[in-house]
Simulated scan of single mutants.
Amino acid sequence: MFNKSNKYLLIQTASIGDVVLISPVIESIHNYEPQSDICILTNTRGAELFHKHPFIKDVFVWNKKKNKYKNLLKIIKDLRKYKFKAVINFQRHLSTALIMGSMHSDKKITFKQSTFSWLFANERFEHEWNKKHEVDRNLTLIRNIVPEEYQVRKPKLYIPDDIHVDLPPSPYVCLSPYSLWYTKQMVVWRWIDLCENLIKLGYNVAILGGNEDVKKNNLFFKKFKINDHLYDFVGKLSLLETLYVISNAIITYSNDSAITHLASSVNAPIATIFCSTVPSFGFTPLSDNSFIIEPNIEILCRPCGMHGHQKCPKDLFICGNSFIIEQLLEPLKKLSLHE
């Protein structure tokens, strides 16, 4: 029915950070098989990251925001037109397992923890929460495809030449105070304190965030005095435009969220603030200049979950408050020493 294929299909339709963290798999497959056609199935927002990507042949989009299951059936129908050398599913949900199981491919690869993996996949690997980075867990899935010496561990995205943003005057620092999860966010007044101190030190400050962060950003600016050194980009940039801003900054400060991985994908200096989650979960930054900031006191209830919560389970949120300004400025001082 189909000729021999050199097409790979990678499935990752979760959050932006998760999408970024499969980019080493893209780099690794291309590194080993430069002539292969790498295709990706992702969500509407994730598709932005692969605009003019040099190693991606096709981007397939599953729109989950509207008519989710109707669109699921449509994307399965569309993808069944192709023969894939391998289909790699990085998620553990039934929907993506169904997509993988419906494909024309001799290799269907996923994690053992994926729903019905025993039914839909013929290669299954353990998703190990043993202090491995998520990148390493993802690379496990191509163990039988790409030899280790060809594997690339760092996230990598590409900013096309047609992406341009009017940047703040240099030097500037990016702050990303927001997260999908409340308990992953350092409290707003600590961000305001950091912002004020950066401006006193002579830096301009760019505030980053998506459309979903606009309401929280209004609270930030309500509490912050109007300042000519503050630049508000929240809800105003595409993901690739955000990458452009990050790539030109002295450093970016972020919660344990997508911005951390976006900064890593362009090897930009990044300081990641961990509140309710911990670095051992495997989502630390991977830039050459990466810094990890954790609460300055021991907190017995931390971590309180694998992800985050919309409310502190103990109604205390000590982990989001336990930072001092000297601690927050330390990464910037270390960068200055290396200049």
Results as ranks from 00 to 15, higher is better:
L286W: 01
L141K: 01
N122W: 08
D162I: 05
D213V: 09
D193G: 04
W118R: 12
H30V: 07
F111I: 12
N211I: 12
P147A: 13
E134K: 11
I75K: 09
A86S: 15
P313E: 05
S257C: 09
M1E: 11
A47N: 04
L335W: 08
D136A: 13
N211Q: 13
K334E: 14
D193E: 15
I250G: 01
N321R: 15
N204T: 07
I199E: 04
V245L: 09
A206S: 10
C39S: 08
L230E: 03
K215A: 12
Y203C: 02
F233P: 03
I199R: 02
K107I: 05
L230D: 00
N227C: 12
F116K: 15
K215P: 04
V61R: 08
S176A: 15
S36N: 05
N67L: 15
E149K: 14
G235I: 07
K132E: 13
L10V: 06
F55R: 07
R124W: 03
Y82C: 06
L262W: 01
N255T: 13
I325P: 00
H338L: 15
G320M: 01
I159F: 03
K156L: 07
I246P: 01
K311M: 05
L10P: 01
L79I: 11
E126I: 11
L335Q: 08
H53I: 10
E212S: 15
S114F: 05
S247G: 14
M103F: 02
H307I: 08
D288Q: 08
I246K: 07
L73F: 14
R80W: 05
L194N: 02
K223P: 04
F2A: 05
K81V: 12
Y244C: 06
H51D: 08
F221M: 14
S247L: 08
K4Q: 10
G282F: 04
V146A: 05
K156H: 14
N197V: 03
T284V: 14
K311W: 08
V278N: 00
W118I: 07
K107D: 06
W189R: 13
L180I: 12
L119F: 15
S290Y: 05
K77L: 10
S28D: 01
I324R: 10
G202N: 11
H104A: 12
A47G: 03
S257R: 02
E27T: 01
Q185T: 03
K215E: 15
V59E: 08
E149R: 09
E128I: 13
H30W: 05
R137H: 09
Q91V: 12
A271H: 01
L208I: 08
